[in-house]
Simulated scan of single mutants.
Amino acid sequence: MRRSTALLSDRGLGEAEGDARFLLLGILGLETRDLLVDGDRRLAADEAAALDAALARRLAGEPVARILGAWEFWGLPFRLGPDTLVPRPDTETLVAVALAAAAGRTAPPRCLDLGTGSGCILTAILHELPAACGIGVDRSEAALRVARHNAVANGIGERAAFLAGDWCDAIGGSFDLIVSNPPYIARDVIPTLDREVRTHDPAAALDGGADGLDAYRRILEGVRRGDLLARGGTLAVEIGFDQADAVRMLARAAGFTERGLHRDLAGRDRVLSFDCPDGPYNRSQGCLTLR
C-alpha cells in the first residue's frame, strides 16, 4: 500500500492513496478487513506482477475503474465495458429523485431507463423497489450485454428487460418512472475534458451535439409523442451543472410541467424532474410492450 501510494503520488495523481487501495483490493480480490488482519502478508510473485501491471496502467493515465473493469454505484457492484460510462456518485442523485417520486404509489411502478449503459440506474431503482419492473434502452448492444449481466448479478434480472433502440423509438406502453442520464457535453467542449474522461469514456455517451441538448430534445419529443409517461408519473433527467434553464425551456415547449430541480452533494444542479405533458395520456395499466 505504501509503495503503491508513493508511486502514484510522485506522478502527481491527487487521489493516490485511494487509487492504491482500490487497485490493491480489486486486483488481489481482497476486502478491507484483509488489510487489517493480514496486512503484513508477503505477496506471491504472480500477485506482485498483477499489481505492478495495474499500477503501470494507472501511471499511464487509465482510470482505476477501467483497470478493474468494475465499479460501485448505490452500494452495488457493476461490471463495466468499453461502451459504458463509469458510474459516478453525482448520478446517484437521479436514483434518489426516482425513488422519492415512487414513494407512496399503490401499484408497483413501471420504469424506463433511456440510454441505460451499464444498467446502473435501472438496477439501483429496481433493487430498492422489490415489486417494480423496468426496461433499459441503449443503442449499443455491447452495453446492453453488460447491463443484463449487472441486473442478474444484483438479483433483479427477472424484473428487467433490455432493448437495443434509439431513445424512445422502439418503446410502447406506459411508464410511471422514466429516467435518463443522457450525453450532455457540447461537442466542442469534449476535447477540453480531463484526459481520463476524453480518452477512456465512450464518445457516444458524452457527445450531446453542438449545444449539448440533442438528447433532451429526442427524449422529450419521444416521451410526448409516444404517450410513454403515465398520469401521475415522473420523468427525471440528469443535466450538466449549467443546463437547467435550457432544459427547462425545452421541456416547457414540449408541454411538460417541472416538478423540481435537484442538486447533488456538491450543491450543483444535477437533476430536473417533470410531470406528464399536456394532452392525451396513455392510461394503460397493462403489460409493457415493445414495438
Score class of each variant (00 low, 15 high):
Gly61Ile: 05
Glu62Ser: 01
Pro63Phe: 05
Pro63Val: 03
Ala65Val: 01
Arg66Lys: 15
Ile67Lys: 05
Leu68Arg: 05
Glu72Gln: 15
Trp74Lys: 07
Asp83Ile: 02
Thr84Asp: 04
Thr84Trp: 08
Leu85Gly: 06
Val86His: 12
Pro89Asp: 14
Thr93Phe: 11
Leu94His: 02
Val95Thr: 07
Ala96Pro: 00
Ala96Val: 00
Ala96Glu: 15
Leu99Met: 02
Ala100Lys: 15
Ala102Thr: 07
Ala103Phe: 02
Gly104Thr: 14
Ala107Gly: 04
Ala107Lys: 14
Pro108Asn: 05
Pro108Val: 09
Leu112Ser: 04
Asp113Pro: 02
Gly119Ser: 12
Thr123His: 06
His127Ala: 15
His127Tyr: 12
Glu128Cys: 12
Pro130Met: 08
Ala131Tyr: 00
Cys133Tyr: 01
Gly134Asp: 01
Arg139Trp: 00
Arg139Lys: 04
Ala142Cys: 04
Ala142Ser: 13
Leu144Ala: 07
Leu144Val: 02
Arg145Asp: 15
Arg148Ala: 15
His149Ser: 13
Asn150Glu: 03
Val152Gln: 15
Asn154Gln: 10
Gly155Trp: 10
Ile156Val: 15
Gly157Ser: 14
Arg159Asp: 13
Ala160His: 00
Leu163Thr: 03
Gly165Trp: 01
Trp167Ala: 11
Trp167Phe: 12
Cys168His: 08
Ala170Phe: 01
Ala170Arg: 15
Gly173Phe: 06
Asp176Ile: 11
Val179Ala: 03
Asn181Thr: 07
Pro182His: 13
Thr192Asn: 09
Leu193Ser: 11
Leu193Thr: 08
Arg195Lys: 07
